[in-house]
Simulated assay, not measured.
Amino acid sequence: MIKFFRKIRQKLLSENKLKRYLVYAFGEIILVVIGILIALQINNWNEQRKEHQKIAKIYERLILDIENDINDLAVRIEGYKANEHLYRKVMNDSVSTDLLDEGLSRIVANIPFSSKLRNTGIAQLKQANLSDPFIQTMISRYGDLDERKTNYETRIEALSQELIKHIRDEYPWYTEWISKKIMKDNSSPELQAFFVNSMEYRNFVTHSYNLIYNNYIRIIEDTIDFLHKTRVELKRELNPQFVILDEKKLLDFAGSYEMVEIDCPIVPDLEVGMKLPVEINSNTLKFKDERFDISMYLYHELGDTFYEPRFINAFFYFERDNNDSIVGLKIQTKSSEERCNIELQKIN
């Protein structure tokens, strides 16, 4: 090609056609410039594609972190709410020794597991140094909620340690209390009197209740709500067609299901006839195993398919009849090493 253009230039010069030569030379320069611009544009497209792929991977990692955080925080709320009735009985002065069997002596001393929100995805996002307002707001909100959550975990832990120190320094039955699970029938009268009748313990419980139920749980609920919304936005960034089902649409999937077929060696205790309720929780379905007391939050994936990231990458496929009503559910895992297939029928 270069040889071809050189011959044209030499011919024009030899024929003394200067004007035509200048026009031709200018055209050749334009072609070179256009070629350079095209090459630059292609390079820009390639760089943008690589950048989009990099950001997409960060979003996918962040979504995984969010889903695991939501599950962990939801389990924590459930644990505290299971003990709320004990707190209320103490504060209402309606305690009996029977409540020792339910863990009355431990409700303040149970130190919460303090942990930061998973930060792998958010750290990668910070390193990407993106100027998008949504990203900047998300990073800031992430930090604020995590700091508030950690602050109350620290305060709850400090109160727990204060109670433990107080009992250790003031009461001879400390060793008895710390060394075994306290029940009504295995504990001394002096120990029982402290947890059942003393104003000291009631004050500790009241303070703990205020920290946990009036503050900490609300922060966790705010954090879960923020994580849900952030996950939806990230999903939409990855797939503009992504649609989150609202609570009204999710009602179709809720109900009680009965196992009719099981091929699940990784969970050997499952039995045909076992009933599993599926409930609504925010923009997810809550799948609660009554026998094993396991809760999972199912995220909408596509159509009638949901998935739960912590349960061995399990997918939940809801089945419809000719009238478009939900009649069944299939649970499958995607890993061949952790294979599991369960079929259920909806019974109400």
Score class of each variant (00 low, 15 high):
residue 12 L to I: 07
residue 13 L to C: 05
residue 16 N to M: 10
residue 18 L to S: 06
residue 19 K to G: 02
residue 22 L to C: 02
residue 29 I to F: 12
residue 34 I to G: 03
residue 38 I to D: 01
residue 50 K to I: 13
residue 51 E to W: 11
residue 54 K to G: 12
residue 57 K to N: 08
residue 61 R to P: 11
residue 68 N to Q: 10
residue 73 L to D: 01
residue 73 L to T: 02
residue 74 A to H: 00
residue 75 V to R: 10
residue 76 R to E: 06
residue 76 R to S: 05
residue 79 G to N: 06
residue 88 R to Q: 09
residue 90 V to S: 01
residue 93 D to Q: 12
residue 94 S to N: 07
residue 101 D to N: 13
residue 114 S to D: 04
residue 116 K to D: 05
residue 116 K to I: 11
residue 119 N to Q: 14
residue 120 T to D: 11
residue 121 G to V: 09
residue 149 K to T: 11
residue 162 E to Q: 14
residue 163 L to F: 04
residue 163 L to G: 02
residue 166 H to W: 00
residue 184 K to H: 10
residue 191 L to W: 01
residue 213 Y to G: 15
residue 217 I to D: 00
residue 218 R to S: 08
residue 223 T to D: 00
residue 225 D to A: 13
residue 229 K to D: 09
residue 230 T to W: 04
residue 231 R to I: 02
residue 234 L to M: 11
residue 236 R to A: 11
residue 237 E to L: 13
residue 239 N to R: 10
residue 239 N to G: 06
residue 245 L to F: 15
residue 246 D to E: 08
residue 249 K to Y: 12
residue 250 L to S: 10
residue 250 L to Q: 08
residue 264 C to I: 09
residue 269 D to V: 11
residue 271 E to C: 09
residue 274 M to W: 06
residue 275 K to I: 12
residue 276 L to T: 09
residue 287 F to P: 02
residue 291 R to Y: 11
residue 297 Y to H: 07
residue 300 H to S: 09
residue 302 L to F: 05
residue 306 F to A: 11
residue 311 F to G: 04
residue 317 Y to P: 04
residue 319 E to R: 12
residue 327 V to H: 00
residue 329 L to S: 01
residue 334 K to V: 11
residue 340 C to G: 07
residue 342 I to K: 03
residue 343 E to P: 04
